[in-house]
């Protein structure tokens, strides 16, 4: 057995304390002060960039199309008018679909990549190196990733929502008889600031949970290149469960 393999095999025992979602989250909260260290800040920013900014264009396109489809289907398909179309856009696309799609994109792309990166670092003995130079792997690897995913989902969802509202209205103005300003005014009249705040909070929580899952799968689960599809599947499955719980919890709280 090579040293690298040996290291990968031993890592779960070393990192046993990283498992357990609530404990992991509490540990993230307790270590927040470590964000003052420049390399931790750089790692956080890098995670936000990888998670949100690199996907922003794609998400904006999907958001605009989703917004357009919601308004156009109601207007052209059912002939139910602007008010219903805007309500549907607000409740379904901005309220539910935006967070759902962005979370899935975040987990399947940057999430899988981050879990792979952490697993590879563990396999190559880099966690040992960090500890030998006096750096706590948790502070340098887990903390910025967990918070980075939370911020990334917040940003991504905001981009999706903005694109769905503005881009969707613009596209609908071309395809239907509704004008752009009509749609925006109708949307602005129905959008409640509290709903926007809840949506933002929900996405930060969901992104943070996704970050916790990514770190758990990258650091505490067994890792080998051949197991990547299995890790990706489990990460996606766990994230979907988290998605349903967070969205369901938010819906219950806001009843």
């Amino acid at each position: 057995m090579s040293l690298a393999q040996d290291s990968a095999r031993r890592a779960p025992a070393e990192l046993a304390d990283y498992s357990g979602g609530v404990e992991l989250f509490l540990r993230v909260v307790r270590r927040l002060a470590q964000l003052s260290r420049p390399p931790v800040q750089a790692a956080l920013w890098q995670q936000v960039q990888r998670g949100a900014l690199d996907l922003a264009g794609f998400v904006a396109l999907i958001g605009a199309l989703a917004g357009f489809l919601a308004i156009a289907t109601v207007e052209l398909g059912f002939g139910l008018g602007l008010t219903v179309g805007v309500r549907l856009l607000q409740a379904l696309v901005l309220g539910q679909l935006a967070g759902f799609i962005c979370a899935l994109l975040l987990v399947t792309g940057p999430g899988t990549a981050a879990a792979w990166e952490l697993g590879l670092m563990r396999r190559q003995g880099e966690l040992r190196t960090l500890r030998l130079i006096g750096i706590a792997p948790f502070d340098y690897l887990v903390l910025p990733r967990v918070l980075g995913f939370g911020l990334a989902l917040f940003v991504l969802t905001f981009v999706f929502q903005a694109a769905a509202a503005v881009g969707g209205a613009a596209l609908a103005a071309v395809a239907t008889q509704l004008t752009f300003s009509q749609q925006i005014e109708a949307l602005a009249a129905t959008l409640a600031p509290a709903a926007l705040a809840v949506s933002a909070l929900k996405n930060v929580v969901l992104g943070t949970v996704a970050g916790l899952l990514v770190c758990h799968h990258g650091l505490a689960e067994s890792f080998a290149p051949a197991e990547t599809p299995r890790v990706a599947r489990r990460l996606l499955g766990d994230s979907l469960v988290a998605l349903v719980i967070v969205h369901g919890g938010a819906a219950l709280l806001l009843r």
Partner: peptide, 24 residues
């Protein structure tokens, strides 16, 4: 404890060629 050990290691310089650097 581990925190104190990390602080102690921070006073040292450690260098290794194999696996001694962060790959990303």
């Amino acid at each position: 404890d581990e925190r104190a050990r990390l602080a102690l290691r921070a006073r040292l310089g450690y260098a290794a060629q194999a696996d001694g650097l962060v790959s990303h």
